[in-house]
Amino acid sequence: DWEDIVRFLRKLFELGEEVVIGDWHNHHREEIKRLIEWLEKHF
């Protein structure tokens, strides 16, 4: 279910905002944000 995936990604992203998950999070933050925005537009 796409909504569950979007919710999971958003939760992960919000957690990442508070607890910076090292370089991985910083590197992928923009991609995650773009992916969430893309999914919201399409689903």
Rank of each mutant, 00 (worst) to 15 (best):
I5Q: 00
E40N: 12
K11S: 06
L9V: 02
I21Q: 08
H28W: 15
K11L: 14
V19Q: 10
H25S: 03
D23A: 05
R29E: 05
R29Q: 08
D4W: 15
V6L: 14
K11F: 15
E30W: 07
H27S: 09
D1T: 14
D1H: 12
L12K: 00
E37F: 04
K11I: 11
V20E: 05
D1E: 11
K33L: 10
L15V: 04
E14Y: 03
F43M: 04
D23G: 09
R7N: 11
E30S: 05
V20M: 09
E37T: 07
V19K: 04
I36R: 02
R34K: 13
W2C: 10
N26V: 04
E31Q: 11
L12P: 00
N26G: 10
F13K: 02
H28S: 06
G22R: 03
E31G: 12
E40G: 06
W38Y: 05
W24Q: 09
H28V: 15
K33S: 09
F13M: 07
E3F: 10
H25L: 15
I5H: 01
I36S: 02
L39G: 01
R34M: 11
E18V: 12
E31H: 11
I21H: 11
G16A: 15
R10P: 00
E30G: 06
R29S: 12
F8D: 05
E18A: 14
H42E: 05
G16Q: 04
F8M: 11
E18W: 13
I36Y: 05
V6A: 04
V20D: 06
I36M: 07
E31D: 09
R29I: 12
V19I: 12
W24T: 06
F13S: 01
E30D: 07
V19M: 09
W2L: 03
I21D: 08
H28K: 04
K41S: 08
G22H: 12
G22L: 03
E14M: 12
E37H: 06
L39E: 00
N26M: 07
G16D: 04
R7M: 05
L15Y: 05
K41N: 06
R34A: 10
H42S: 10
E3P: 10
K33Q: 12
I21F: 08
E14N: 05
K41Y: 05
R10S: 10
E37Q: 08
E18L: 14
K33W: 11
I21W: 09
D4E: 09
N26H: 12
V6P: 02
L39F: 11
W38V: 02
W38N: 02
F43R: 03
K11Y: 15
K11N: 08
G22A: 05
V20K: 12
R7T: 02
H25R: 05
L35C: 05
K11G: 07
F13R: 02
E14F: 06
H25Y: 14
R10T: 13
E14V: 03
L9P: 00
I5A: 01
L9E: 00
F43P: 02
E17I: 15
H28N: 03
L15P: 02
